[in-house]
Simulated assay, not measured.
Amino acid sequence: MYEKHEKLFIPFITAGDPCADATIEIALALEEAGASVLELGVPYSDPLADGPIIQEASKRALKAEMTLGKAMKLVPEMRNRGLTIPLVIFTYINPILQYGLEKFVKEAASFGIDGVLVPDLPIEESLELKMLCEAHDMELICLVAPTSKERIEKIAKQAKGFLYCVSSLGVTGVRDELNPAVYEFLKTVKKHTSIPMAVGFGISNAEQVKLMNEFSDGVVVGSALVREIGALENQLKDPKERINALQTIKTFVSSLISS
């Protein structure tokens, strides 16, 4: 699934931030800039794992009336426009349950979505969703955090697609420095999985990307990218100005992965 990329670069964006049309074009720009997988976040009013930058993106998207159903329907448009990389929906369990578990997975698969990541769904409660995903050729992406070695092993052995390694406990956000304990954590994870490991939460500059690539199979960049999108909100909303804003985003991504 990820063979063409020596190291995974997985950007996170919020669907509908700052508008649906811009989301589609941002996704295409990110693939052009070198993204290997795209995480498409669904705005939610109670985002347990999201720091202030992504919370603000959710507010912008909710103001633009983005929903789980509308977010998923953006994906066929992205595919029709040429998006080829795997796409993972990032959402919370409550919107999925309200939507209907089976309906969600069936529609997601039919829309060209490759996986789903649900940060507030413990692995002990994920069996039904996991089985539905497997039945529809989708992957339920696991998050693993620096907790007990027993729990790390349990999650790592069940993971599919790629394993999302959380660099530190807490919420997402731009961090100047990463927790030094992340290195031992990644070594522990690596002992128990054969699938690609991508590190997220706080990866925000080229130096951190380069460093984490030495200890993992790639990185997830969310808040730093979403911050750029927020700064370009007005240009991205304006079709005449959007092309320049998209170029700024591509330049930012290239600066992260070219080191």
Rank of each mutant, 00 (worst) to 15 (best):
D137E: 13
S167H: 09
R151I: 00
R242T: 07
V171H: 06
G82I: 10
E102F: 00
E77K: 15
Q247S: 14
A181K: 14
I13F: 12
R242H: 07
V182H: 11
V189E: 05
I10R: 00
V75C: 08
N205Y: 13
A159V: 12
V75Q: 11
S36V: 03
G82A: 12
N205V: 06
H192Y: 14
H5A: 15
A145P: 04
S168M: 15
G82P: 04
T193G: 03
G202T: 04
V118M: 09
Y183S: 06
E107K: 10
Y99H: 11
L232T: 05
E56N: 14
I141Q: 02
E184I: 00
L74W: 01
L127W: 12
A231E: 15
D17F: 04
L121V: 06
P196C: 01
F12A: 04
I195H: 04
V199R: 06
M138L: 13
L74F: 00
R242G: 06
E102R: 15
L140S: 11
V182K: 04
A198K: 01
M66A: 14
V37L: 10
I229R: 02
A231F: 09
L129S: 05
G161A: 06
C142W: 00
G222A: 13
S58T: 08
I123R: 14
D217F: 09
F9R: 03
E177I: 02
L178Q: 05
Y164G: 09
S216W: 08
E125F: 13
K190T: 07
M197W: 02
N234P: 00
Q98G: 14
K190C: 06
K157L: 10
G100D: 08
I89L: 14
C142G: 01
S258G: 08
R60W: 12
E184W: 13
N234C: 04
Q235I: 01
S148K: 12
S223V: 03
G115Y: 06
E150W: 01
F201I: 09
P86E: 04
I54M: 05
V171Y: 08
E214H: 13
L169F: 01
Q98S: 13
L8N: 07
F9V: 05
N205P: 00
G41C: 04
G218V: 04
A245P: 05
A57K: 04
K59S: 07
N213P: 05
K160V: 15
L74R: 07
A35E: 09
L40A: 11
I10V: 15
L140G: 13
V219F: 09
D238H: 11
Y92W: 09
L97T: 10
A20K: 12
D238K: 13
S204G: 13
E6D: 15
E125T: 05
K73P: 00
Q247P: 02
R79V: 09
I152F: 01
Y92S: 05
P76V: 10
K70G: 11
A33W: 06
P18F: 10
I141L: 05
A27F: 08
A159Q: 03
L101H: 02
R60Q: 07
V253R: 10
S58R: 06
F185L: 08
M138E: 03
A198Y: 02
T172P: 11
R227G: 04
E184H: 14
A61V: 07
L129N: 05
S126P: 00
S216F: 07
K73L: 13
V182M: 03
Q158R: 15
